[in-house]
Each structure stands twice: as C-alpha cells, then as structure tokens.
Amino acid sequence: MTETSWHEQLRARGYRVTPQRQLVLEAVKECEHATPEEICNRVRQTARGVNISTVYRTLELLEELGMVTHSHLGHGAPTYHLASEADHVHLVCRGCGEISEVSQDLVDNFVKDLDRSVGFATDVHHLTVFGRCRNCR
C-alpha cells in the first residue's frame, strides 16, 4: 500500500489526511507487528507532541476503515499491521518469544474442517498459533 493510496482511501471515506494519521500509518508499515506503545514511540521520533490516546484513536479508525488490523500475539497489547499485508498466520514461540509468519495455505484444511464439522467460519487474519520454535524444541 502506497502513501498515495492511503490518502485516497481516507479522503474517499470523508476523512482528512492529518499528520498524525500519516505518521501512525507509516509507523505501522515500518514496524510490521507493533503494539500501540511501540507505534507511539516511533511516531514521537518525528512528532513529540503525539500522545498514546491519539495513537489508539487513530488505530481504531484505521481498523474500522480496513487499513490496519490487529492480532493478539500474547497476553499483552495487540499488535497492529497493515491490512493489505495480513494474509498470514502468526507463530509465536513460548520459549524465546520469536514471532514468525506462515502462509494461510498451511491452515486451509483446518479451516475447511471447522466449517464442515461445526459450521464455524474462521477469521484467519487473526489466527495466532502458540508453541515452540525449532530452536527451543
């Protein structure tokens, strides 16, 4: 997703492109998987006056607009990433804390089985699998 398409998406939905929104989107893109606090710290490198509540409100709006999405990768705050880059499943190692991504194709059979067996439609964009990585096993 380019900066131009961000501007177009916001304007098409009746929202202004504010410096804060632009900085939050850039931080989400640069950090890939970041908590609101990490995003805020990144934004403050450019705009020191931005506070955490502004970041939370901006993330909420951007998620409502389908521009960002979040995942829960542990017990802490959710992590955010661009919705256009959300076609993956997160693997979180309980040993070292490493977070890796795999293609949704790897869970296709599981998703189909859930649908067929119990009629459950899985939101794979929020799927996180916890376990132990190759090094920690």
Score class of each variant (00 low, 15 high):
Thr46Met: 06
Lys29Tyr: 14
Gly49Ala: 14
Thr54Arg: 14
Asn51Asp: 02
Arg44Tyr: 04
Gln20Phe: 09
Gln45Leu: 15
Glu60Ser: 09
Leu62Cys: 11
Glu63Asn: 06
Leu61Ala: 07
Val17Gln: 11
Arg42Tyr: 06
Glu37Asp: 09
Arg16Tyr: 12
Thr35Val: 03
Glu37Tyr: 12
Pro36His: 01
Thr18His: 10
Arg44Val: 08
Gly49Asn: 15
Ile52Ser: 04
Thr18Gly: 07
Glu63Asp: 10
Gln20Arg: 11
Gly49Asp: 13
Arg57Pro: 15
Gln22Met: 05
Ala34Gly: 07
Val43Ala: 00
Asn41Tyr: 06
Thr46Gln: 10
Ser53Glu: 13
Gln22Pro: 02
Thr35His: 04
Glu30Asn: 14
Val43Asn: 01
Pro19Asp: 13
Lys29Thr: 02
Val24Ala: 00
Val17Pro: 15
Tyr15Pro: 13
Glu60Leu: 12
Asn41Phe: 07
Leu59Asn: 05
Glu63Tyr: 00
Glu30Ile: 12
Val55Lys: 04
Thr35Asn: 07
Leu23Thr: 06
Arg16Leu: 09
Leu62Arg: 06
Arg16Ile: 03
Val24Tyr: 00
Thr18Phe: 05
Pro19Glu: 09
Pro19His: 15
Cys40Lys: 11
Arg42Cys: 15
Ala34Phe: 03
Val55Thr: 08
Arg21Gln: 03
Ala34Lys: 00
Arg57Ser: 04
Leu61Val: 07
Val55Ser: 02
Leu59Ile: 04
Thr35Glu: 01
Gln45Gly: 14
Asn51Val: 02
Glu32Lys: 12
Leu62Ile: 11
Glu32Asp: 05
Ala34Asn: 02
Thr18Ser: 13
Val17Arg: 13
Asn51Gly: 03
Glu38Gly: 15
Arg57Cys: 14
Gln22Ala: 02
Ala27Val: 09
Leu62Ala: 15
Gly49Cys: 11
Ile39Pro: 04
Leu23Lys: 09
Cys40Glu: 07
